[in-house]
């Protein structure tokens, strides 16, 4: 390790289903870093700071209210930051570690406020993953839980087709994350999930150098072989004993039309993020869509009956 770290904290950021829980497990496995399950603290702080703008542009919220009471914005932000960071510092202390890290999957949807709160006061490790794989994983999660988390539900309300909603959620999260990293080159690092699973040791070395922790050869092995601390978060990684590339490119199993629709939403952001665009055609005309539907029913009628049909 070269030099003392500029910050004791490391915040993991990224679209939900981008591998942020894997990143949490890797960080937590480091002998100097403690990263609990999702504490939701930063998103809660962001909601705490939300304000409504009313007549004459007056903000009605905590910052404005406390300002009238004599507390300037920087004082409020510092107090709130220390409140949130304090839990993580105390958690690290209880684990006998000197550095803390935090990860909550939905923080990215509050990144603008989190930046205001602590954008310059911690290291950020931002994880990016192919948008169609993220959308597919979000779909599977929603199907399994039979629910949408509120931040994702906001997209479902705007885009009733789930894959369309999840793609827009990914685009917004990815653009916000990339812009954040560009604004904070000194304390924000962008890593690709695909690189992480292809060569975990190489990416971990890069992270260690950036956040200024010692590199140890046992670190990555410990990340998945050790028992993870229990907490809120992605339960799928708890059953994993190895980092593998099985989760890459699963979007290719989707239908051509679904991929095309997702490509129309994601391709610009995919290209900006270093991924090749996916095949996308223009939306079908109503006449073509009607003919497709008609042929779909007629071809389906040709299918030979199976025992399941009789049941």
């Amino acid at each position: 390790m070269t030099g003392a770290p500029a910050h004791d904290g490391i915040i993991v950021m990224g679209a939900p289903r981008s591998g942020t829980t894997l990143m949490r497990r890797i960080l937590d496995a480091h002998p100097d870093v403690a990263c609990p399950g999702e504490t939701m603290l930063l998103a809660a702080c962001a909601r705490f700071l939300q304000a409504d703008t009313v007549v004459e542009g007056l903000d009605v919220g905590v910052l404005s209210g406390l300002q009238f009471a004599g507390f300037d914005e920087e004082f409020v932000l510092r107090s709130l930051r220390e409140f949130a960071f304090g839990f993580h510092r105390e958690y690290a202390r209880r684990q006998g570690k000197s550095r803390w890290a935090c990860k909550s999957a939905l923080d990215v949807y509050y990144l603008d406020v989190i930046e205001k709160l602590c954008g310059a006061h911690a290291y950020f490790v931002c994880v990016q993953r192919h948008g169609l794989d993220v959308a597919l994983s979000l779909k599977e999660l929603s199907d399994a839980t039979e629910a949408y988390l509120s931040e994702i539900h906001a997209y479902i309300k705007r885009y009733p087709r789930p894959f369309e909603a999840f793609c827009h959620a990914w685009v917004d999260a990815t653009r916000a994350t990339r812009a954040f990293v560009a604004r904070h080159p000194e304390n924000a690092l962008l890593v690709k999930y695909e690189d992480l699973v292809a060569d975990p040791a190489a990416v971990a070395r890069q992270i260690a150098a950036f956040v200024r922790v010692d590199w140890t050869p046992e670190w990555i092995a410990q990340a998945l072989h050790g028992a993870p601390t229990v907490g809120l978060g992605d339960w799928k990684t708890y059953g994993k004993g190895a980092i593998d590339a099985d989760s890459i490119g699963r979007w290719r199993s989707l239908s051509e039309d679904t991929i095309s629709m997702m490509g129309r939403i994601c391709n610009d952001t995919l290209a900006a993020s270093g991924y090749p665009p996916v095949a996308a055609h223009e939306p079908r005309s109503p006449k073509e869509a009607r003919r497709r539907y008609e042929l779909g029913l007629k071809v389906r009628r040709l299918r030979k009956p199976t025992p399941a049909d009789a049941g």
């Binding site: 239908s255 051509e256 073509e288 003919r291 497709r292 042929l295 779909g296 071809v299 389906r300 040709l302 299918r303």
Partner: peptide, 13 residues
């Protein structure tokens, strides 16, 4: 498969 058959018919048309 059936989806590919529909796409084929549309492309043939």
């Amino acid at each position: 498969d059936s989806i590919a058959a529909v796409n084929l018919l549309l492309d043939l048309e």
